[in-house]
Design a protein around this nucleic acid. Structure first.
Length: 799
RNA sequence: GCCAGCCUGGCGGAAUGGUAGACGCGGUGGACUCAAAAUCCACUAUCAGUGAUGAUGUGAGGGUUCAAGUCCCUUGGCUGGUACCA
């Protein structure tokens, strides 16, 4: 219909060359910061799902700009990490080159969508100028005592030969390759994120995240309020401390369970008479992957420790001690008290091994299952007759008074395993000296550059490939000047993305990670858009990191993001997730080629609720192209008027109001729909005014920026939209003078009447009664009452 | 298992408790054309009826209300997250 390719190229070139969307700090203007998760530049390029997200952010950015905001809409590349390394290994090129290649493709794709990104702020996390500051921030963690090295049982992916954080090994499988993870004892760098559990929870109140995002974070942090209880270990000076949320059931505790990794098993080897059997069980537990271990459908297993007994802290009774893998070393104290009557897992265990079951709460049938509900306590001495809540309070007090326990809070959140045995990551800037121990690289020596090497494939020993580069590893101790070695582990690829939004504010600063004045001006990200898959990991890491920087006085706000939304996915036309293997991937390049970027953008905004998934349908895209063609053709029927056409004025004002409201509320689909309604109205007229046309183009501009700018220019309608202000609407003109309202009889629609706005109840009622079909339906019946809601409805209730 | 979200025409989807199905796709019929494409017009939830109209209808079953897709209870299914977390 029109040459979209030529038009789009023209404007994209102009925007890029003239840096139309470059922004600078301007304290006279209110800022607005739109952030989309920066992409991982993989070898496959963007698909239409990405295009939807970038288009939506661009609509908002362009709209906010025309509303007078100083809009920061940046883009960069999250390019460290295993996938880039694997891509490089597979294609036999250096990771650095692979990344550069992929970035070129991604950037080209983004530019072909006509995004209003300020490209002067572009960077990659793999740029030494950037990772210098990632390393610098690691040193701040270290200096604050929040980075430490520890021999830890970690999640280990045998295929990737790499340690994984809990977040990366969800469900007991490797996030990257899906292989079942095993445990491996390794010396690793960790960040004390668990110390920040409470701050991460509390900080959520200071955000406007989507509720489901907040909830995902709350669940991941997993705060649980309870008490610790101390049991004496018979014939020793040691105690077994357990964590429980149900200290009120203490009188029902009939045994103890230690996790197979518990330290007492080594410490008291000599007291354990069946040590061989115990060792065998520990070996068996170790050999199992997390996923097997935590499969709740499997039967409980365990071994009673012959030779160790615990003393019940109140009754003084001796309790048997078992080991079982249903108790996790990583949660609580790695030991539990077994209360089979009121805990499902304990019940299952006790019934299998014939352990005594004492009910301490009235209710349920203990011969069938554990009773986990509330009820009055029995068999519980001073708790008898109390309900759960009261009993917990009383027991906690008793534990404290008698020094056998304490109220306690436990979190599921653990420290962040920060080491990766990989080449393609930020080197951890630490040096090990036999004399001085771990010594940080002096800040003025940053960045610690990745060396150019021949082989960056993972080693079989589980060590980083960097360990094979002696000229890089061997160095001198910054402290004593003696012989020393560099840390060969690198950071996880979550590191670079844990502060990237800060760098956009001042991307080329070589003195600081960013200037404080600029950090203060741009402040928090106003709207942060990303996938639900990052609602726990990335978002928690980023918040943790930012809270820490704030405490160090490096950034002005504790919370980095104001509103966090999560977009839906674009599914294939078969309704399934787009993937190469299913052959349902749609490439935005093809769509831009066949229909134009404007049409693609409009369709992706029109496809459905932005926060929900939607299936791709190329016919829908064709429909949007048709809509744009109609907008384009309208240029041939302009009259000379510079005012809105009288009989369309109302609709125009309504549309201005609706499109603005919808963009601010992420209701892009209904915004597009109201523009379609507007063009439908224009089409009914033989001519439209220049004002009508300019208005339509302006409202459509955030969605279809190229053709609207072009039409505006060739029709000579006014300033370029990239520099103009969003139109105002007149509230009084958004209201119709005449309304059509429904008349119901017994709640069923029987007629509609057209009346003046704000007609009186009396008039509405009498008009309603005049309708033939209403008369027919109330004939011979008694009118019980008549409900008249002005401007809305008339409902006549008859019997 | 637990937590969250979702379920509306043939399809994608609209609906501050107030005329369910806006808008788009698809479909049917027509105009234009030698013909096709493009474009334009009309119709298009289902059933009955030429029609006026009537009945049914937002996963299912109850309830609140003059009025329920929307609020409450019960329940089914789908999707996502998470899981021996003591």
């Amino acid at each position: 219909m029109y040459n979209f390719r030529e038009i789009e190229n023209k404007w994209q070139k102009k925007w890029y060359e003239e840096a139309t969307f470059k922004v600078e700090m301007d304290k006279n203007k209110e800022k607005y910061y739109v952030l989309v998760e920066f992409p991982y530049p993989s070898g496959t390029g963007l698909h239409v799902g990405h295009a939807r997200v970038y288009s939506a952010s661009d609509v908002l950015a362009r709209y906010k700009k025309s509303k007078g905001f100083n809009v920061l809409f940046p883009m960069g590349w999250d390019a460290f990490g295993a996938p880039a390394e694997q891509y490089a290994i597979k294609n036999h090129i250096y990771p650095r080159e692979a990344v550069e290649e992929n970035i070129k493709v991604f950037k080209g794709q983004m530019q072909s969508l006509g995004l209003s990104i300020d490209w002067s702020r572009e960077y990659s996390t793999t740029d030494p100028e950037y990772y210098k500051w990632t390393q610098w921030q690691f040193l701040q963690f270290y200096k604050a005592g929040l980075a430490y090295k520890d021999e830890k049982e970690i999640n280990w992916c045998p295929k990737c030969k790499m340690g994984l954080s809990n977040e990366d090994a969800q469900g007991g499988v490797c996030e990257r390759c899906g292989t079942k993870t095993t445990k491996k004892l390794k010396n690793q760098w960790l960040l004390r994120m668990s110390d920040y559990a409470e701050k991460l929870l509390a900080g959520l109140d200071d955000t406007n995240f989507f509720d489901k995002v907040k909830l995902a974070q709350i669940n991941w942090i997993g705060k649980s309020v309870g008490a610790s209880v101390i049991f004496k270990l018979k014939d020793t000076d040691d105690v077994i401390e357990v964590f429980t949320t149900r200290c009120d059931t203490l009188f029902g505790a009939t045994y103890m369970v230690l996790s197979p990794e518990h330290k007492y098993l080594d410490k008291y080897r000599d007291l354990i008479k069946n040590i061989k059997e115990v060792d065998e069980y520990r070996e068996y537990a170790k050999s199992k992957s997390d996923i097997e271990r935590t499969d709740i459908t499997k039967e409980k297993t365990g071994v009673e420790i012959d030779g160790l007994r615990a003393i019940h802290p109140i009754t003084g009774e001796e309790l048997p001690i078992w080991i079982s893998d249903y108790v996790l070393a990583s949660y609580g104290t790695g030991a539990v008290m077994g209360v089979p009557a009121h805990d499902e897992r304990d019940y299952e265990f006790a019934t299998k091994f014939g352990i005594k079951i004492i009910p301490v709460i009235d209710g349920g049938d203990i011969s069938k299952e554990a009773y986990t509900g509330d009820g009055l306590h029995i068999n519980s001495d001073f708790l008898d007759g109390l309900d759960k809540e009261t009993a917990i309070l009383k027991m906690t007090k008793y534990l404290e008074d008698n020094n056998i326990g304490d109220s306690k809070v436990n979190y599921r959140l653990q420290d962040w395993i920060f080491s990766r045995q990989r080449f393609w990551g930020e080197p951890i800037p630490m040096i090990h000296c036999d004399k001085c121990g771990w010594v940080p690289v002096p800040e003025e020596e940053l960045p610690v550059l990745l060396p150019d090497v021949e082989s960056y494939e993972p080693t079989d020993t589980g060590e980083s490939p960097l360990a094979n580069v002696p000229e890089w590893v061997n160095t001198t101790c910054p402290h004593c000047g003696g012989k020393a070695e560099r840390e060969t582990d690198t950071m996880p690829n979550w590191a670079g993305s844990s502060w990237y939004w800060l760098r956009y504010m001042d991307p080329h600063n070589d003195k600081k990670l960013a200037d404080m004045d600029k950090l203060k001006y741009w402040g928090k990200v106003d709207l942060y858009d990303g996938g639900m898959e990052h609602a726990t990991r990335h978002l928690l890491y980023a918040r943790f990191w930012n809270i820490f920087l704030h405490e160090q006085g490096i950034v002005p706000n504790s919370e980095p993001f104001d509103t966090r939304i999560s977009h839906g996915m674009i599914l294939g036309s078969n309704g399934e997730k787009m993937s190469k293997s299913k052959g349902n991937v749609v490439n935005p390049n093809d769509m831009v080629r066949d229909y134009g970027a404007d049409a693609l953008r409009v369709y992706e905004m029109f496809i459905g609720d932005y926060t929900k998934d939607a299936a791709w349908n190329e016919n829908g895209l064709k429909g949007c192209k048709k809509f744009l063609d109609r907008v384009y053709r309208t240029k041939d029927k302009l009259n000379d008027s510079l005012e809105y056409t009288k009989d369309m004025e109302n609709l125009i004002h309504k549309t201005i109001k609706k499109v603005g409201y919808d963009i601010e509320h992420l209701a892009y689909n209904t915004a597009v729909s109201s523009l379609m309604i507007l063009i439908n109205e224009y089409d009914k007229h033989d001519t439209v005014s220049r004002a009508d046309y300019r208005l339509l183009l302006q409202l459509l501009n955030p969605f279809a920026p190229h053709m609207t700018e072009e039409l505006n220019e060739i029709c000579n309608l006014g300033d370029a939209f990239s520099e103009s202000v969003w139109p105002e609407y007149d509230e009084s003109k958004t209201i119709d003078d005449m309304l059509e309202i429904g008349v119901q009889v017994n709640g069923k629609l029987r007629a509609t009447i057209t009346v003046a706005k704000d007609s009186s109840k009396e008039l509405l009622e009498s008009e309603a009664m005049k309708q033939d079909n209403v008369k027919k339906n109330i004939e011979g019946k008694d009118i019980v009452k008549t409900i008249v809601v002005p401007n809305r409805i008339v409902n006549i209730v008859v019997k």
